[in-house]
């Protein structure tokens, strides 16, 4: 601004005080409108992109409330004319949706808690204890991230089949009870604590387990929160493994169960989408509730290039 003012003065040589003030006012107003236009443009661009990205979800919600006969018309019907809750009720009566939701909650909950326990134990050993082969073992853990799940899924299926574990909760949960990424994330956080913290606790007679529970876990709440949100959502959304190892309605998770609605008949599209919407709600709710934690925990220090 000031630069432009002086330039104007240089250009016109003689200029009165009033003219200068008026000029300043005009320039300020112009800058303000320019800023407003820019913010408005940014807002408009954001609205367009957000609508495009959210379109599938908005469309799903709209269809879930639509009576079945309204969908089957040739004219464009984006919003339901006579919104109804019938589809949701139908979804519950057609498949044991509550049971599926319960199964998924049990599976995802156990996996989340289990991963937090195993990962914090391992990360503790890797960052505070000294033992032979520490470097090699850590490399081995990190190397597991390179193996895609599909390279092991057939053998795993055969293993649990031979053990007679198919179609039980343990088979859904146990293979996912730890994760290299979790160990890495927790270790990254533990490394920021000074070693003296551990040593002085030990001098005061604090055992290792007590040190983890009383000191480490309270200090790493944000990492645990991030890990919990991420793990729970991923477990809730898991598809291939539950598809292979569950066979009965008693054990199916929501993601598998919901695709049963897919094949009922073409008249029940609205019911199917209502089911999908209900299945999406828990994971979205947890995501929105934990978004801040997730971003702070995962991106503050862990991913800096």
């Amino acid at each position: 601004m000031s630069q432009m003012d002086t330039m104007a003065i240089n250009g016109q040589k003689t200029i009165s005080r009033e003219e200068l003030l008026a000029l300043k006012k005009r320039m300020n107003a112009r800058a303000l409108t320019r800023r407003r236009i820019r913010t408005g443009g940014l807002l408009a661009a954001n609205i367009v992109v957000a609508v495009i990205i959210l379109l599938p979800l908005l469309y799903a919600v709209s269809i879930a409330f639509m009576p079945s006969n309204e969908l089957f018309t040739t004219d464009l019907n984006i919003l339901p004319k006579h919104p109804t809750l019938q589809n949701f009720a139908d979804a519950f009566t057609n498949i044991p949706l509550l049971r599926f939701i319960l199964n998924s909650f049990i599976m995802a909950g156990c996996i989340t808690i289990g991963q937090i326990i195993t990962c914090s134990l391992a990360a503790f050993a890797f960052s505070f204890l000294e033992f032979k082969g520490k470097g090699v073992l850590f490399m081995v853990v990190m190397a597991t991230m390179m193996v895609p799940g599909e390279a092991t899924i057939i053998s795993n299926y055969l293993t649990v089949g031979n053990l007679g574990m198919l179609d039980t909760y343990p088979v859904l949960i146990i293979p996912y009870l730890t994760s290299a990424m979790g160990i890495f994330l927790f270790r990254q956080f533990y490394m920021t604590f000074p070693k003296s913290l551990y040593e002085s606790a030990k001098l005061d007679g604090c055992g290792n387990l007590r040190f983890i529970v009383k000191i480490l876990i309270p200090l790493t709440k944000s990492a645990i929160g991030a890990m919990a949100v991420y793990t729970f959502i991923n477990a809730w959304n898991m598809y291939m493994w539950p598809l292979l190892v569950t066979g009965s309605n008693n054990m199916r998770t929501v993601q598998i169960g919901i695709s049963m609605l897919n094949s009922v008949d073409s008249q029940s599209i609205t019911m199917m989408i209502a089911g999908v919407v209900m299945v999406i709600i828990p994971s979205i709710a947890i995501f929105i509730a934990g978004q801040k934690q997730l971003i702070r925990g995962m991106f503050s220090g862990a991913v800096k290039g």
Partner: peptide
């Protein structure tokens, strides 16, 4: 809104 797709399961999204 932009981060939301990461919370959606591939199977649910496929059906939509």
């Amino acid at each position: 809104a932009y981060a939301l797709p990461m919370a959606i399961a591939s199977s649910s999204a496929a059906m939509v």
